[in-house]
Design a binder for these strands. Sequence first.
DNA 1: GGGCGGTTTTAGGAATACCTAAATATACCA
DNA 2: TGGTATATTTAGGTATTCCTAAAACCGCCC
Lengths: 225, 225
Amino acid sequence: MPLSEHTESVQDYLKSIFDIQREHGRVATTMLAERLGNSPASVTGMIKKLAALNLVEYEPYQGAVLTPAGEKIALEVIRHHRLIERYLAEALGVPWDQVHAEAEKWEHVLSEDLEDRIDAVLGYPTTDPHGAPIPGRDGTLPPPHTTRLCDLQSGQSATVAEVSDHDPAMLRYFAELGLRPGADVTVVAVAPFGGPLTVRLDNAEHAVGREVAGYVAVCNVTSGG
Amino acid sequence: MPLSEHTESVQDYLKSIFDIQREHGRVATTMLAERLGNSPASVTGMIKKLAALNLVEYEPYQGAVLTPAGEKIALEVIRHHRLIERYLAEALGVPWDQVHAEAEKWEHVLSEDLEDRIDAVLGYPTTDPHGAPIPGRDGTLPPPHTTRLCDLQSGQSATVAEVSDHDPAMLRYFAELGLRPGADVTVVAVAPFGGPLTVRLDNAEHAVGREVAGYVAVCNVTSGG
DNA sequence: GGGCGGTTTTAGGAATACCTAAATATACCA
DNA sequence: TGGTATATTTAGGTATTCCTAAAACCGCCC
Ligand SMILES: [Mn+2]
Ligand SMILES: [Mn+2]
Ligand SMILES: [Mn+2]
Ligand SMILES: [Mn+2]
């Protein structure tokens, strides 16, 4: 059963449910409604439909969880999305703050054959331009990163692993700072009372808000040096 | 007003109306219904909607004709379609009997920005892989070819200009024969009573049915030699 | 343990784009 | 010029996916 067995709407719901579930466990109606920009009432209706299709398990008032079948489709859509983002950035030079919007549309009409061709042309990449992992053809996906830039303490260094890709303006800001996946970052100072972090990137120092730093995942954390 | 102002359905209707209008003038309900695979009743309904949007002129029982606004959108969709076909064939190696189906889906979600990037990467091509002209950004399109392979007489040579792209099996047949845009073809013999043509391509001779030869447009016709 | 606020579902409806069956207009032919 | 076959439209319906407003539920706090 290829993706095209399901409507674009169903694909988008499953994708969002997957994302929320990763972060929060069971998916509440309102949270899903906010993410999708639909009314809670509409979301209830669609969740019931997904449950009837055996794509989610649903208990009224208790939220929804993906079934294995639903998760498989979600991962397939996410694979399309991230492969396309990577392709647009690499092969067509689309700026990284624009690839998301383009992929959002294309992901639903990509054939499996074209998916494979794109994968091959790119040399079977494992991450999208924002550092997010691309699910394998078999639906495998590494666990999410656990450490964020805002979790680091003064003096610690790390490698940028992934940045949030939903706000184009924030992505342009990240690009300005040099805050891209693979970049080395050092936390020079952490202001108290939830204040900004001072970080060093490419030998330049920048003050960044605590909240923004929460949208950056890091790995390879080392202390001092 | 970008393409996305109109539904995919509207885009497909306008494209088909444009195609039919080129060949037959005023577009009859039934012919459009056949092309789209919809019932005539549905087509009547949509034509009335298009007329309300000022995209076609419509006289009940007399068929429809595109307005300038409708034609502009049709040409825009066709430009997307043919650029995408070309891109898929050239950049991703999609076989020429498969590009049509893929482009049919992608054409509706292509942004103007990505359209420009693809155009540039391809070096501003003027035809798709089947020889059909790609409308310019400004909506210009050369007049259709007037001579078909089946119109040639014994002894005449010509250059293949364009082949029909709607039947993948026929495209594979054309590829086998070497009947691709730009190829030189000579008509060696024409059987009487609507019989087959014998044609020479790449120094090999083939008998092809009169009907199939009607799906091949030619140019640069020369007699004898 | 009752009440209250926020969450969620139900009820009722709108828009889009299809369909089949029946009615009607057109065009052609005798 | 009437009659009929064909093309087209109208009438009535279905499926999808969204909406707002109102009702129902859940959990927390006093
Ligand atoms: Mn896929
Ligand atoms: Mn991304
Ligand atoms: Mn365009
Ligand atoms: Mn083509």
